[in-house]
Design a protein around this nucleic acid. Structure first.
Lengths: 262, 262
DNA sequence: AACGAGCGTTCCGCACGCCAGTACGGGAGC
DNA sequence: GCTCCCGTACTGGCGTGCGGAACGCTCGTT
Protein backbone atom coordinates (compact mmCIF):
# COMPACT_ATOMS: atom_id res chain seq x y z
CA UNK A 1 0.00 0.00 0.00
CA UNK A 2 2.90 2.29 -0.47
CA UNK A 3 1.17 5.45 -1.54
CA UNK A 4 3.51 7.30 -3.83
CA UNK A 5 3.26 10.34 -1.62
CA UNK A 6 4.83 8.37 1.17
CA UNK A 7 8.04 7.44 -0.51
CA UNK A 8 8.49 10.55 -2.57
CA UNK A 9 8.09 12.86 0.36
CA UNK A 10 9.20 10.54 3.11
CA UNK A 11 12.32 12.36 4.26
CA UNK A 12 11.54 16.05 4.28
CA UNK A 13 8.38 17.48 2.90
CA UNK A 14 10.10 20.84 2.64
CA UNK A 15 12.44 19.83 -0.15
CA UNK A 16 10.83 20.78 -3.38
CA UNK A 17 11.88 18.79 -6.42
CA UNK A 18 10.72 15.24 -5.82
CA UNK A 19 12.05 13.89 -9.10
CA UNK A 20 15.52 15.07 -8.19
CA UNK A 21 15.33 13.40 -4.81
CA UNK A 22 14.38 10.17 -6.51
CA UNK A 23 17.43 10.51 -8.74
CA UNK A 24 19.67 11.12 -5.77
CA UNK A 25 18.29 8.08 -4.01
CA UNK A 26 19.05 6.01 -7.07
CA UNK A 27 22.59 7.35 -7.15
CA UNK A 28 23.15 6.70 -3.48
CA UNK A 29 21.87 3.15 -3.82
CA UNK A 30 24.12 2.68 -6.82
CA UNK A 31 27.06 3.68 -4.70
CA UNK A 32 26.00 1.61 -1.70
CA UNK A 33 25.57 -1.50 -3.84
CA UNK A 34 28.75 -0.77 -5.78
CA UNK A 35 26.94 -1.00 -9.07
CA UNK A 36 23.55 -2.60 -9.70
CA UNK A 37 20.88 -3.36 -12.28
CA UNK A 38 17.51 -1.74 -12.79
CA UNK A 39 15.49 -4.42 -11.05
CA UNK A 40 17.87 -4.65 -8.14
CA UNK A 41 17.64 -0.93 -7.56
CA UNK A 42 13.88 -0.97 -7.88
CA UNK A 43 13.63 -3.60 -5.15
CA UNK A 44 16.14 -1.84 -2.93
CA UNK A 45 14.30 1.46 -3.15
CA UNK A 46 10.72 0.19 -3.47
CA UNK A 47 10.23 2.13 -6.65
CA UNK A 48 8.82 0.78 -9.93
CA UNK A 49 11.35 -0.49 -12.42
CA UNK A 50 10.26 1.91 -15.10
CA UNK A 51 10.87 4.89 -12.85
CA UNK A 52 14.34 3.72 -11.92
CA UNK A 53 15.03 3.09 -15.56
CA UNK A 54 14.06 6.61 -16.58
CA UNK A 55 16.30 8.16 -13.98
CA UNK A 56 19.23 5.92 -14.80
CA UNK A 57 18.75 6.62 -18.47
CA UNK A 58 18.82 10.36 -17.96
CA UNK A 59 21.86 10.11 -15.71
CA UNK A 60 23.60 7.92 -18.24
CA UNK A 61 22.89 10.24 -21.15
CA UNK A 62 24.45 13.00 -19.11
CA UNK A 63 27.36 10.71 -18.26
CA UNK A 64 26.86 10.71 -14.52
CA UNK A 65 26.51 6.96 -14.54
CA UNK A 66 28.08 4.44 -16.87
CA UNK A 67 26.80 1.11 -17.96
CA UNK A 68 28.91 -2.00 -17.90
CA UNK A 69 26.82 -4.73 -19.49
CA UNK A 70 23.69 -4.97 -17.38
CA UNK A 71 25.01 -3.16 -14.35
CA UNK A 72 25.06 0.57 -13.91
CA UNK A 73 27.84 2.25 -11.99
CA UNK A 74 28.64 5.68 -10.65
CA UNK A 75 30.63 7.52 -13.34
CA UNK A 76 33.89 9.38 -13.16
CA UNK A 77 32.16 12.69 -13.75
CA UNK A 78 31.69 12.86 -10.01
CA UNK A 79 35.44 12.89 -9.63
CA UNK A 80 35.54 15.95 -11.84
CA UNK A 81 33.03 17.78 -9.69
CA UNK A 82 34.63 16.55 -6.48
CA UNK A 83 38.13 17.63 -7.40
CA UNK A 84 36.71 20.92 -8.53
CA UNK A 85 35.02 21.44 -5.17
CA UNK A 86 38.19 20.54 -3.35
CA UNK A 87 40.44 22.76 -5.42
CA UNK A 88 38.24 25.74 -4.67
CA UNK A 89 38.81 25.38 -0.93
CA UNK A 90 41.54 27.61 0.38
CA UNK A 91 42.20 25.32 3.29
CA UNK A 92 43.07 22.49 0.91
CA UNK A 93 45.70 24.48 -0.94
CA UNK A 94 47.26 25.70 2.26
CA UNK A 95 47.07 22.55 4.35
CA UNK A 96 48.06 20.01 1.69
CA UNK A 97 51.82 20.63 1.91
CA UNK A 98 51.64 20.39 5.69
CA UNK A 99 49.77 17.11 5.55
CA UNK A 100 52.26 15.74 3.04
CA UNK A 101 55.09 16.82 5.28
CA UNK A 102 53.51 15.18 8.31
CA UNK A 103 53.06 11.90 6.47
CA UNK A 104 56.64 11.88 5.33
CA UNK A 105 58.06 12.85 8.69
CA UNK A 106 56.08 10.32 10.72
CA UNK A 107 55.72 7.60 8.10
CA UNK A 108 52.09 7.29 9.15
CA UNK A 109 48.76 8.33 7.65
CA UNK A 110 48.08 12.08 7.82
CA UNK A 111 44.64 13.61 7.29
CA UNK A 112 42.81 16.87 6.72
CA UNK A 113 39.19 17.07 7.84
CA UNK A 114 36.63 19.85 7.62
CA UNK A 115 33.15 20.18 9.05
CA UNK A 116 30.19 20.26 6.68
CA UNK A 117 26.56 20.01 7.76
CA UNK A 118 27.60 18.78 11.19
CA UNK A 119 29.64 15.88 9.90
CA UNK A 120 33.33 15.58 9.23
CA UNK A 121 34.54 15.30 5.65
CA UNK A 122 38.00 14.00 4.84
CA UNK A 123 39.41 16.45 2.33
CA UNK A 124 42.86 15.00 1.87
CA UNK A 125 45.02 12.13 3.07
CA UNK A 126 48.70 11.48 2.60
CA UNK A 127 50.26 8.10 3.22
CA UNK A 128 53.66 7.82 4.80
CA UNK A 129 56.01 4.91 4.20
CA UNK A 130 54.46 2.59 6.79
CA UNK A 131 50.96 4.03 6.77
CA UNK A 132 48.13 1.72 7.80
CA UNK A 133 45.46 0.79 5.29
CA UNK A 134 42.14 1.99 6.57
CA UNK A 135 38.70 2.49 5.11
CA UNK A 136 38.92 6.25 4.85
CA UNK A 137 39.11 8.04 1.54
CA UNK A 138 38.82 11.64 0.43
CA UNK A 139 35.23 12.80 0.53
CA UNK A 140 34.23 10.26 3.15
CA UNK A 141 32.04 11.46 5.96
CA UNK A 142 32.42 10.59 9.62
CA UNK A 143 30.67 11.62 12.80
CA UNK A 144 32.65 14.26 14.61
CA UNK A 145 32.56 12.79 18.11
CA UNK A 146 34.39 9.57 17.31
CA UNK A 147 37.63 10.82 15.80
CA UNK A 148 40.39 12.99 17.14
CA UNK A 149 39.91 15.25 14.12
CA UNK A 150 36.24 15.73 14.88
CA UNK A 151 36.81 16.29 18.58
CA UNK A 152 39.48 18.89 17.82
CA UNK A 153 36.92 20.74 15.71
CA UNK A 154 34.06 20.36 18.19
CA UNK A 155 36.26 21.77 20.92
CA UNK A 156 36.53 24.99 18.96
CA UNK A 157 33.00 25.61 17.72
CA UNK A 158 30.31 27.86 19.22
CA UNK A 159 28.51 26.05 22.01
CA UNK A 160 25.11 26.26 20.36
CA UNK A 161 26.49 24.75 17.19
CA UNK A 162 27.90 21.82 19.14
CA UNK A 163 24.49 21.34 20.73
CA UNK A 164 22.81 21.38 17.32
CA UNK A 165 25.26 18.87 15.90
CA UNK A 166 24.84 16.45 18.79
CA UNK A 167 21.10 16.80 18.66
CA UNK A 168 21.06 16.08 14.95
CA UNK A 169 23.52 13.22 14.79
CA UNK A 170 23.60 11.87 18.34
CA UNK A 171 26.66 10.09 19.72
CA UNK A 172 26.47 6.68 18.02
CA UNK A 173 28.83 3.98 19.22
CA UNK A 174 31.40 2.78 16.71
CA UNK A 175 33.60 0.71 19.01
CA UNK A 176 33.52 -0.01 22.76
CA UNK A 177 35.88 2.94 23.15
CA UNK A 178 33.59 5.51 21.54
CA UNK A 179 32.53 8.37 23.78
CA UNK A 180 28.74 8.08 23.91
CA UNK A 181 28.03 10.17 26.96
CA UNK A 182 27.40 13.85 26.54
CA UNK A 183 29.04 14.90 29.78
CA UNK A 184 32.15 12.82 29.22
CA UNK A 185 32.46 14.40 25.80
CA UNK A 186 32.15 17.92 27.21
CA UNK A 187 34.90 17.21 29.69
CA UNK A 188 37.14 15.88 26.97
CA UNK A 189 36.49 18.90 24.77
CA UNK A 190 37.52 21.14 27.66
CA UNK A 191 40.72 19.13 28.07
CA UNK A 192 41.41 19.44 24.35
CA UNK A 193 41.01 23.20 24.54
CA UNK A 194 43.41 23.17 27.47
CA UNK A 195 46.25 21.22 25.93
CA UNK A 196 45.70 22.21 22.30
CA UNK A 197 45.35 18.81 20.67
CA UNK A 198 43.02 15.80 20.64
CA UNK A 199 43.64 12.09 20.88
CA UNK A 200 41.62 9.12 19.69
CA UNK A 201 42.24 5.69 21.16
CA UNK A 202 40.35 3.30 18.91
CA UNK A 203 37.12 5.24 19.19
CA UNK A 204 36.10 4.81 15.57
CA UNK A 205 38.26 1.86 14.55
CA UNK A 206 39.63 -0.53 17.15
CA UNK A 207 43.39 -0.58 17.26
CA UNK A 208 43.78 2.78 15.55
CA UNK A 209 45.11 5.75 17.45
CA UNK A 210 45.14 9.33 16.21
CA UNK A 211 46.40 12.73 17.25
CA UNK A 212 44.74 15.85 15.86
CA UNK A 213 45.04 19.60 16.15
CA UNK A 214 42.44 22.15 15.09
CA UNK A 215 42.91 24.82 12.46
CA UNK A 216 41.38 27.99 13.86
CA UNK A 217 39.94 30.58 11.50
CA UNK A 218 39.84 34.32 11.84
CA UNK A 219 36.59 34.28 13.78
CA UNK A 220 38.19 32.13 16.48
CA UNK A 221 36.35 28.96 15.51
CA UNK A 222 37.69 25.80 13.93
CA UNK A 223 37.60 25.54 10.15
CA UNK A 224 39.22 22.12 10.01
CA UNK A 225 41.73 19.82 11.66
CA UNK A 226 44.91 17.94 10.84
CA UNK A 227 45.82 14.54 12.23
CA UNK A 228 48.20 11.61 12.18
CA UNK A 229 46.82 8.08 12.50
CA UNK A 230 48.64 4.86 13.22
CA UNK A 231 48.39 1.45 14.85
CA UNK A 232 48.42 1.22 18.60
CA UNK A 233 51.70 -0.69 18.42
CA UNK A 234 53.53 2.38 17.14
CA UNK A 235 51.37 5.10 18.66
CA UNK A 236 52.22 4.93 22.35
CA UNK A 237 54.42 6.36 25.06
CA UNK A 238 56.32 9.52 24.39
CA UNK A 239 55.66 9.38 20.66
CA UNK A 240 51.89 9.38 21.18
CA UNK A 241 51.87 11.95 23.98
CA UNK A 242 54.58 14.37 22.96
CA UNK A 243 56.39 13.86 19.69
CA UNK A 244 53.41 13.48 17.36
CA UNK A 245 51.24 16.08 19.12
CA UNK A 246 54.02 18.60 18.66
CA UNK A 247 54.37 17.83 14.97
CA UNK A 248 50.62 17.95 14.38
CA UNK A 249 50.18 21.20 16.28
CA UNK A 250 53.04 22.71 14.37
CA UNK A 251 51.47 21.72 11.05
CA UNK A 252 48.13 23.17 12.13
CA UNK A 253 49.74 26.41 13.26
CA UNK A 254 51.61 26.88 10.02
CA UNK A 255 48.38 26.26 8.15
CA UNK A 256 46.58 28.87 10.25
CA UNK A 257 49.24 31.43 9.55
CA UNK A 258 49.32 30.78 5.84
CA UNK A 259 45.53 30.92 5.71
CA UNK A 260 45.38 34.41 7.14
CA UNK A 261 48.49 35.94 5.61
CA UNK A 262 48.46 35.20 1.88
CA UNK B 1 8.32 33.78 -25.73
CA UNK B 2 10.57 31.07 -24.50
CA UNK B 3 8.12 28.25 -24.27
CA UNK B 4 9.18 26.12 -21.36
CA UNK B 5 9.20 23.06 -23.56
CA UNK B 6 11.98 24.62 -25.56
CA UNK B 7 14.50 25.02 -22.83
CA UNK B 8 13.61 21.98 -20.83
CA UNK B 9 13.91 19.67 -23.76
CA UNK B 10 16.33 21.63 -25.84
CA UNK B 11 19.26 19.22 -25.81
CA UNK B 12 17.92 15.73 -26.28
CA UNK B 13 14.27 14.89 -26.36
CA UNK B 14 15.25 11.30 -25.67
CA UNK B 15 16.26 11.85 -22.07
CA UNK B 16 13.26 11.31 -19.91
CA UNK B 17 13.37 13.11 -16.59
CA UNK B 18 13.29 16.81 -17.40
CA UNK B 19 13.49 17.97 -13.81
CA UNK B 20 16.70 16.03 -13.32
CA UNK B 21 18.24 17.54 -16.42
CA UNK B 22 17.43 20.98 -15.10
CA UNK B 23 19.17 20.07 -11.87
CA UNK B 24 22.22 18.86 -13.72
CA UNK B 25 22.38 22.04 -15.72
CA UNK B 26 22.28 24.04 -12.52
CA UNK B 27 25.10 21.96 -11.10
CA UNK B 28 27.20 22.30 -14.20
CA UNK B 29 26.70 26.05 -14.24
CA UNK B 30 27.62 26.16 -10.58
CA UNK B 31 30.87 24.46 -11.40
CA UNK B 32 31.57 26.56 -14.47
CA UNK B 33 31.01 29.78 -12.55
CA UNK B 34 32.90 28.48 -9.52
CA UNK B 35 30.01 29.23 -7.22
CA UNK B 36 27.10 31.56 -7.90
CA UNK B 37 23.87 33.00 -6.58
CA UNK B 38 20.31 32.19 -7.54
CA UNK B 39 19.81 35.18 -9.81
CA UNK B 40 23.14 34.75 -11.53
CA UNK B 41 22.35 31.14 -12.32
CA UNK B 42 18.87 32.03 -13.52
CA UNK B 43 20.32 34.51 -15.99
CA UNK B 44 23.04 32.13 -17.12
CA UNK B 45 20.58 29.32 -17.80
CA UNK B 46 17.56 31.37 -18.89
CA UNK B 47 15.44 29.72 -16.25
CA UNK B 48 13.19 31.51 -13.73
CA UNK B 49 14.73 32.31 -10.40
CA UNK B 50 12.16 30.33 -8.48
CA UNK B 51 12.93 27.19 -10.43
CA UNK B 52 16.64 27.53 -9.86
CA UNK B 53 15.96 28.14 -6.21
CA UNK B 54 13.91 24.97 -5.84
CA UNK B 55 16.61 22.85 -7.39
CA UNK B 56 19.37 24.44 -5.36
CA UNK B 57 17.32 24.02 -2.24
CA UNK B 58 16.77 20.34 -2.86
CA UNK B 59 20.43 19.83 -3.69
CA UNK B 60 21.44 21.70 -0.57
CA UNK B 61 19.13 19.70 1.69
CA UNK B 62 20.73 16.58 0.31
CA UNK B 63 24.16 18.13 0.81
CA UNK B 64 25.22 18.08 -2.80
CA UNK B 65 25.72 21.83 -2.75
CA UNK B 66 26.71 24.04 0.13
CA UNK B 67 25.87 27.63 0.77
CA UNK B 68 28.42 30.21 1.73
CA UNK B 69 26.51 33.38 2.47
CA UNK B 70 24.65 34.19 -0.71
CA UNK B 71 26.64 32.01 -3.05
CA UNK B 72 26.06 28.35 -3.61
CA UNK B 73 28.94 26.00 -4.33
CA UNK B 74 29.44 22.42 -5.39
CA UNK B 75 29.72 20.34 -2.23
CA UNK B 76 32.29 17.79 -1.16
CA UNK B 77 29.80 14.96 -1.47
CA UNK B 78 30.86 14.73 -5.09
CA UNK B 79 34.34 13.87 -3.92
CA UNK B 80 32.87 10.98 -2.00
CA UNK B 81 31.12 9.62 -5.07
CA UNK B 82 34.09 10.32 -7.29
CA UNK B 83 36.61 8.58 -5.10
CA UNK B 84 34.18 5.72 -4.81
CA UNK B 85 33.93 5.42 -8.58
CA UNK B 86 37.68 5.55 -8.92
CA UNK B 87 38.38 3.00 -6.22
CA UNK B 88 36.11 0.52 -7.96
CA UNK B 89 38.24 0.59 -11.12
CA UNK B 90 40.74 -2.23 -11.31
CA UNK B 91 43.01 -0.24 -13.58
CA UNK B 92 43.36 2.43 -10.90
CA UNK B 93 44.54 0.01 -8.24
CA UNK B 94 46.99 -1.63 -10.58
CA UNK B 95 48.35 1.41 -12.40
CA UNK B 96 48.65 3.78 -9.44
CA UNK B 97 51.94 2.39 -8.12
CA UNK B 98 53.39 2.52 -11.62
CA UNK B 99 52.35 6.13 -12.09
CA UNK B 100 53.79 7.03 -8.71
CA UNK B 101 57.02 5.31 -9.64
CA UNK B 102 57.19 7.14 -12.97
CA UNK B 103 56.71 10.49 -11.31
CA UNK B 104 59.42 9.82 -8.78
CA UNK B 105 61.86 8.45 -11.31
CA UNK B 106 61.46 11.27 -13.85
CA UNK B 107 60.62 14.10 -11.47
CA UNK B 108 57.90 15.11 -13.90
CA UNK B 109 54.10 14.84 -13.96
CA UNK B 110 52.80 11.31 -14.58
CA UNK B 111 49.22 10.55 -15.58
CA UNK B 112 46.69 7.76 -15.99
CA UNK B 113 43.90 8.28 -18.51
CA UNK B 114 40.95 6.11 -19.50
CA UNK B 115 38.39 6.44 -22.24
CA UNK B 116 34.76 7.08 -21.32
CA UNK B 117 32.04 8.05 -23.76
CA UNK B 118 34.64 8.89 -26.41
CA UNK B 119 36.51 11.35 -24.25
CA UNK B 120 39.58 10.89 -22.11
CA UNK B 121 39.24 11.06 -18.34
CA UNK B 122 42.24 11.64 -16.12
CA UNK B 123 41.95 9.06 -13.37
CA UNK B 124 45.13 9.76 -11.46
CA UNK B 125 48.11 12.06 -11.54
CA UNK B 126 51.33 11.95 -9.56
CA UNK B 127 53.66 14.90 -9.28
CA UNK B 128 57.41 14.43 -9.32
CA UNK B 129 59.82 16.80 -7.66
CA UNK B 130 60.00 19.31 -10.53
CA UNK B 131 56.57 18.62 -12.02
CA UNK B 132 54.98 21.43 -13.99
CA UNK B 133 51.78 22.99 -12.74
CA UNK B 134 49.10 22.45 -15.35
CA UNK B 135 45.34 22.73 -15.49
CA UNK B 136 44.67 19.00 -15.35
CA UNK B 137 43.09 17.36 -12.35
CA UNK B 138 41.65 13.93 -11.64
CA UNK B 139 38.25 13.56 -13.25
CA UNK B 140 38.98 16.15 -15.93
CA UNK B 141 37.92 15.31 -19.46
CA UNK B 142 39.95 15.95 -22.58
CA UNK B 143 39.50 15.19 -26.25
CA UNK B 144 41.47 12.13 -27.23
CA UNK B 145 43.14 13.46 -30.37
CA UNK B 146 45.09 16.25 -28.72
CA UNK B 147 47.07 14.43 -26.08
CA UNK B 148 49.64 11.68 -26.27
CA UNK B 149 47.51 9.68 -23.85
CA UNK B 150 44.48 9.94 -26.08
CA UNK B 151 46.40 9.13 -29.23
CA UNK B 152 47.91 6.07 -27.58
CA UNK B 153 44.40 4.88 -26.80
CA UNK B 154 42.96 5.75 -30.22
CA UNK B 155 45.76 3.82 -31.88
CA UNK B 156 44.52 0.68 -30.16
CA UNK B 157 40.76 0.85 -30.51
CA UNK B 158 38.53 -0.85 -33.10
CA UNK B 159 38.46 1.20 -36.28
CA UNK B 160 34.71 1.76 -36.20
CA UNK B 161 34.93 3.07 -32.64
CA UNK B 162 37.59 5.57 -33.68
CA UNK B 163 35.31 6.69 -36.49
CA UNK B 164 32.41 7.11 -34.12
CA UNK B 165 34.52 9.11 -31.68
CA UNK B 166 35.82 11.47 -34.34
CA UNK B 167 32.37 11.91 -35.78
CA UNK B 168 30.95 12.75 -32.37
CA UNK B 169 33.67 15.05 -31.07
CA UNK B 170 35.49 16.20 -34.19
CA UNK B 171 39.13 17.28 -34.10
CA UNK B 172 38.95 20.70 -32.45
CA UNK B 173 42.10 22.80 -32.43
CA UNK B 174 43.59 23.54 -29.04
CA UNK B 175 46.91 25.02 -30.11
CA UNK B 176 48.53 25.62 -33.51
CA UNK B 177 50.18 22.22 -33.06
CA UNK B 178 46.96 20.25 -32.67
CA UNK B 179 46.36 17.59 -35.29
CA UNK B 180 43.11 18.67 -36.94
CA UNK B 181 43.31 16.65 -40.13
CA UNK B 182 41.83 13.21 -40.21
CA UNK B 183 44.43 11.71 -42.54
CA UNK B 184 47.37 13.12 -40.62
CA UNK B 185 45.90 11.63 -37.48
CA UNK B 186 45.50 8.21 -39.09
CA UNK B 187 49.12 8.24 -40.16
CA UNK B 188 50.24 9.17 -36.70
CA UNK B 189 48.15 6.44 -35.13
CA UNK B 190 49.80 3.93 -37.45
CA UNK B 191 53.21 5.22 -36.40
CA UNK B 192 52.22 4.90 -32.75
CA UNK B 193 51.19 1.29 -33.30
CA UNK B 194 54.55 0.74 -34.97
CA UNK B 195 56.82 2.11 -32.29
CA UNK B 196 54.61 1.38 -29.27
CA UNK B 197 54.34 4.83 -27.76
CA UNK B 198 52.86 8.26 -28.53
CA UNK B 199 54.27 11.76 -28.29
CA UNK B 200 52.59 15.11 -27.88
CA UNK B 201 54.45 18.29 -28.77
CA UNK B 202 52.33 21.10 -27.38
CA UNK B 203 49.17 19.86 -29.05
CA UNK B 204 46.88 20.62 -26.15
CA UNK B 205 48.97 23.10 -24.19
CA UNK B 206 51.72 25.05 -25.86
CA UNK B 207 55.12 24.31 -24.42
CA UNK B 208 54.07 21.02 -22.87
CA UNK B 209 55.45 17.77 -24.22
CA UNK B 210 54.24 14.31 -23.27
CA UNK B 211 55.08 10.68 -23.89
CA UNK B 212 52.40 8.03 -23.46
CA UNK B 213 52.01 4.28 -23.80
CA UNK B 214 48.74 2.37 -24.04
CA UNK B 215 47.53 -0.24 -21.60
CA UNK B 216 46.11 -3.07 -23.66
CA UNK B 217 43.32 -5.22 -22.24
CA UNK B 218 42.61 -8.88 -22.79
CA UNK B 219 40.54 -8.22 -25.89
CA UNK B 220 43.51 -6.56 -27.59
CA UNK B 221 42.13 -3.05 -27.29
CA UNK B 222 43.31 -0.17 -25.12
CA UNK B 223 41.71 0.23 -21.71
CA UNK B 224 43.81 3.25 -20.76
CA UNK B 225 47.19 4.90 -21.09
CA UNK B 226 50.04 6.12 -18.94
CA UNK B 227 52.12 9.22 -19.63
CA UNK B 228 54.82 11.58 -18.48
CA UNK B 229 54.44 15.32 -19.14
CA UNK B 230 57.01 18.06 -18.87
CA UNK B 231 58.15 21.38 -20.26
CA UNK B 232 59.78 21.47 -23.66
CA UNK B 233 63.01 22.66 -22.04
CA UNK B 234 63.47 19.34 -20.29
CA UNK B 235 61.62 17.05 -22.70
CA UNK B 236 63.95 16.92 -25.68
CA UNK B 237 66.72 14.97 -27.32
CA UNK B 238 67.48 11.51 -26.12
CA UNK B 239 65.40 11.93 -22.99
CA UNK B 240 62.26 12.68 -25.01
CA UNK B 241 62.88 10.07 -27.70
CA UNK B 242 64.37 7.18 -25.79
CA UNK B 243 64.74 7.40 -22.06
CA UNK B 244 61.19 8.49 -21.14
CA UNK B 245 59.47 6.32 -23.78
CA UNK B 246 61.23 3.31 -22.34
CA UNK B 247 60.17 4.11 -18.80
CA UNK B 248 56.60 4.80 -19.82
CA UNK B 249 56.30 1.64 -21.88
CA UNK B 250 57.74 -0.37 -19.05
CA UNK B 251 55.18 1.06 -16.64
CA UNK B 252 52.37 0.28 -19.07
CA UNK B 253 53.60 -3.24 -19.60
CA UNK B 254 53.81 -3.99 -15.90
CA UNK B 255 50.30 -2.64 -15.50
CA UNK B 256 49.03 -4.88 -18.29
CA UNK B 257 50.58 -7.93 -16.69
CA UNK B 258 49.25 -7.15 -13.25
CA UNK B 259 45.80 -6.50 -14.70
CA UNK B 260 45.55 -9.94 -16.22
CA UNK B 261 47.35 -12.01 -13.62
CA UNK B 262 45.92 -11.14 -10.21
C1' DA C 1 18.06 59.23 7.01
C1' DA C 2 15.51 58.04 3.27
C1' DC C 3 15.78 55.86 -0.95
C1' DG C 4 16.07 52.27 -4.58
C1' DA C 5 18.38 48.52 -6.76
C1' DG C 6 19.56 44.08 -6.18
C1' DC C 7 19.50 39.93 -3.82
C1' DG C 8 17.30 35.35 -1.93
C1' DT C 9 12.97 33.69 -0.75
C1' DT C 10 7.86 32.76 -0.87
C1' DC C 11 3.38 32.19 -2.90
C1' DC C 12 0.06 30.16 -6.16
C1' DG C 13 -2.37 28.29 -10.32
C1' DC C 14 -2.17 25.78 -14.50
C1' DA C 15 -0.73 22.40 -17.76
C1' DC C 16 2.74 19.25 -18.55
C1' DG C 17 5.75 15.52 -17.55
C1' DC C 18 6.68 12.12 -13.83
C1' DC C 19 5.02 7.93 -11.68
C1' DA C 20 3.52 3.44 -11.99
C1' DG C 21 1.30 -0.44 -14.09
C1' DT C 22 1.60 -3.27 -18.03
C1' DA C 23 3.51 -5.37 -22.10
C1' DC C 24 7.46 -6.77 -25.11
C1' DG C 25 11.96 -9.19 -26.56
C1' DG C 26 16.00 -11.63 -25.49
C1' DG C 27 19.42 -14.22 -22.76
C1' DA C 28 20.63 -17.68 -19.23
C1' DG C 29 19.57 -22.02 -16.56
C1' DC C 30 17.40 -25.96 -14.33
C1' DG D 1 12.30 -26.54 -25.38
C1' DC D 2 10.26 -24.16 -21.62
C1' DT D 3 10.35 -20.89 -17.90
C1' DC D 4 12.06 -17.17 -15.31
C1' DC D 5 13.95 -12.73 -14.99
C1' DC D 6 16.34 -9.28 -16.94
C1' DG D 7 16.34 -4.45 -19.34
C1' DT D 8 13.45 -1.74 -22.24
C1' DA D 9 9.10 0.44 -24.44
C1' DC D 10 4.58 2.33 -24.15
C1' DT D 11 0.42 4.75 -22.22
C1' DG D 12 -2.44 7.55 -19.38
C1' DG D 13 -3.99 10.08 -15.16
C1' DC D 14 -2.92 13.05 -11.47
C1' DG D 15 0.32 15.08 -8.90
C1' DT D 16 3.91 18.52 -9.27
C1' DG D 17 7.42 21.25 -11.23
C1' DC D 18 7.43 25.55 -13.82
C1' DG D 19 7.22 30.41 -14.06
C1' DG D 20 5.47 34.95 -13.17
C1' DA D 21 4.83 38.17 -9.55
C1' DA D 22 5.28 39.88 -4.96
C1' DC D 23 7.72 40.02 -0.46
C1' DG D 24 11.48 41.46 2.99
C1' DC D 25 16.11 42.20 3.45
C1' DT D 26 20.78 44.19 2.95
C1' DC D 27 23.42 47.01 0.49
C1' DG D 28 25.52 51.39 -1.64
C1' DT D 29 24.10 55.92 -2.93
C1' DT D 30 22.28 60.49 -2.54
Amino acid sequence: MSVNGQQTMAAKTEGRIGALETSLRVLEALKRLEGAGVTELAKELHIPKSTVYSHLNTLRQNEYVVRDGDTYRVGLKFLDFGEHARNRMRIYDVAKPQVDHLAEKTGELANLLVEEHGEGVYVYRARGAQAVRVDTHAGMRVKLHCTSLGKAILAHLPEEQVDAIIERWGLPERTPQTVTDREVLEEELAAIRERGYAQDDGERLSGLRCVAAPIIGQNGYAVGAISVSGPMSRMKGERFDEEIPELVQSAANVTELNMTYS
